[in-house]
C-alpha cells in the first residue's frame, strides 16, 4: 500500500488509525476485499477491445471517459474457471501505484458485496503456502462474523510485468 493511501486513511479515520475500510466482492463463492481508497468506480461489464498477445486474464481495453483502461479478469488471474459475462458482471475500476507508476485498471469480478472496517491487527497473516502462485497476491485473511475475507494486495495482483505470458 502506498504511503499516500495510508496517509489518506489516517486523515479520514482520524483517531482509529488502525482501521481500514475494505470493499469486498464475491468470486466463485469466496469473498475478497480490497482497500476501498483504491477504488475509483464500479461499472457494469462492457465489451473491451482485445489487446493482441496479451495474457489471457487481460480481457482488453475500454474507454473510460477518454482514458484507455485495461480490464483484468480476476478469476483468470487467480486461475479460477471463468464464467460467461452477463449484464450483471461487475467491473471495479481501481487506481493503484505499481512500481511507482500510477495505473488505472478495471477488475472483472462476479459481484460487489460489502464494505467493512477492518483493523489491521485482526488481519491474520497468510498461512504459509509458498507453493501457490496466488499467495503473493494476498495481503491477509480476516474473519468478519462467520465469514472469512481474503484481503488482496492490489499492487501485486495488477503488476502484469512480473509474470507476463502469452496465450496460445
Amino acid at each position: 500500500m502506498s504511503e499516500q493511501a495510508e496517509l489518506n486513511q489516517q486523515l479520514i479515520l482520524g483517531g482509529q488509525q488502525d482501521e481500514n475500510q475494505y470493499l469486498t466482492f464475491m468470486m466463485a463463492g469466496e469473498e475478497y476485499g480490497m482497500d476501498i481508497l483504491a477504488v475509483q468506480e464500479i461499472r457494469g461489464w462492457e465489451d473491451a477491445t482485445v489487446i493482441p498477445n496479451a495474457p489471457t486474464f487481460v480481457k482488453g481495453a475500454i474507454n473510460l471517459r477518454g482514458t484507455i483502461v485495461p480490464i483484468v479478469d480476476l478469476r483468470l488471474r487467480f486461475g479460477i474457471d471463468s464464467v460467461a459475462y452477463s449484464p450483471l458482471t461487475v467491473v471495479i475500476v481501481v487506481s493503484v501505484e505499481i512500481k511507482e507508476q500510477h495505473k488505472v485498471m478495471g477488475l472483472v469480478v462476479d459481484a460487489v458485496s460489502d464494505v467493512y472496517s477492518i483493523s489491521e491487527e485482526t488481519a491474520k497473516d497468510v498461512p504459509d503456502f509458498q507453493d501457490s502462485d496466488n499467495a503473493q497476491y494476498v495481503h491477509g485473511l480476516v474473519n468478519v462474523g462467520e465469514k472469512m475475507v481474503v484481503l488482496l494486495n492490489l499492487a501485486k495482483v495488477l503488476d502484469l510485468s512480473a509474470n507476463y505470458m502469452h496465450h496460445g
Binding site: T49, G60, A61, I68, M105
Partner: peptide
C-alpha cells in the same frame, strides 16, 4: 492518439490506442 502504456504496458506491434466515433477503443 492515446497512450495504452500509461495504464497497461508496452504492447509489441502497437504504438498506441484511440477512441473511435462509437466510443470504442481501437489500437
Amino acid at each position: 492518439i492515446k497512450s495504452l502504456e500509461a495504464n497497461y504496458q508496452k504492447v509489441d506491434g502497437i504504438s498506441g490506442a484511440t477512441i473511435l466515433g462509437d466510443g470504442r477503443v481501437s489500437l
